[in-house]
């Protein structure tokens, strides 16, 4: 009796357990994939943030150029209008003169007629000449303006590119200087010395002068010595080979703000 009871209890329990298991298998328990979907938008936001700073400069670059182009176009239109007006005036004058000449011709006949004709021809030639000159001038002006606008745009693009280049070179300079710098014992955090450095296209340091002292002579001197110790900036020499104009503009003589914690040009 007892034995059978315990066995039947075992059979019942086992059957129920495995039945539940099979049920779970058949029906399945979903819901986890939906949870994952909620997480994803955060990643998208992160990528968006990266794009924003890049997108910002674009309108800035276009903004200054557009007005210039607009201005150029406006001027061109105005000049065209002026020209048309002048030509019309010339035509009107010509007509009035012609009618006057005709009246005179009726009065003074052939002698004066010839003189009037000559004069009209002369006038016309002079007017034509003036108009032509003006047209040429205007064309030149327009071209100049267009070129100026293009230069401006190119300069802007260049300057943006250059800014990155300059940044990388200035950090290179900082690295070199700070690697050669030996810390004097009296150096304290927050000490800043400004050095005026002159380079030649070979990258060699020509002169170093202290522009603004940190107030600590030893520190100033150590910074100056560090620059002298570098002696030659190889990368600057390479830059000078590639783009002498940029070198002349940025690195022939520049200010180095020497700050042991955070070096900046």
């Amino acid at each position: 009796m007892d034995k059978w009871l315990s066995y039947s209890a075992g059979v019942c329990f086992s059957a129920v357990l495995h039945g539940v298991l099979l049920l779970v298998l058949i029906v399945g328990w979903q819901g986890e994939p939906e949870l994952r979907k909620i997480v994803r938008p955060q990643y998208i936001e992160a990528t968006l943030l990266e794009i924003k700073p890049k997108a910002r400069p674009v309108p800035q670059t276009k903004a200054p150029i557009k007005p210039a182009q607009d201005r150029a176009e406006k001027q061109r239109k105005e000049q065209e209008l002026k020209q048309q007006r002048i030509q019309e005036q010339a035509r009107l004058e010509k007509k009035s003169r012609a009618t006057a000449a005709k009246a005179k011709a009726a009065k003074d006949k052939a002698v004066k007629d010839k003189a009037a004709k000559d004069k009209a021809a002369k006038d016309k030639a002079a007017k034509d000449k003036v108009a032509k000159e003006k047209l040429a001038q205007q064309n030149k002006l327009r071209e100049d303006q267009l070129l100026a606008a293009m230069d401006e745009e190119q300069a802007f693009l260049d300057s943006e590119e250059d800014a990155q280049l300059i940044g990388s070179y200035s950090s290179y300079i900082n690295d070199r200087v700070s690697n050669n710098w030996s810390r004097p014992s009296s150096a304290r955090r927050g000490m800043i010395v400004e050095l005026a450095i002159q380079l030649v296209p070979t990258g060699r340091v020509v002169s170093v002068t202290i522009v603004k002292s940190s107030g600590n002579e030893a520190f100033d001197y150590s910074a100056e010595r560090a620059v002298r110790k570098v002696d030659r900036f190889e990368k600057i020499a390479e830059l000078a080979k590639q783009d002498l104009a940029l070198f002349d503009r940025e690195f022939r003589s520049f200010l180095l703000v020497f700050n042991p914690k955070d070096l900046r040009q």
Partner: peptide, 18 residues
């Protein structure tokens, strides 16, 4: 095997407790 072992587990549990 799983079904059988569970039958045994329950039966043994009851028997040993008793």
């Amino acid at each position: 095997a799983s079904v059988m072992s569970w039958v045994m587990i329950v039966q043994r549990g009851i028997y040993l407790r008793k």
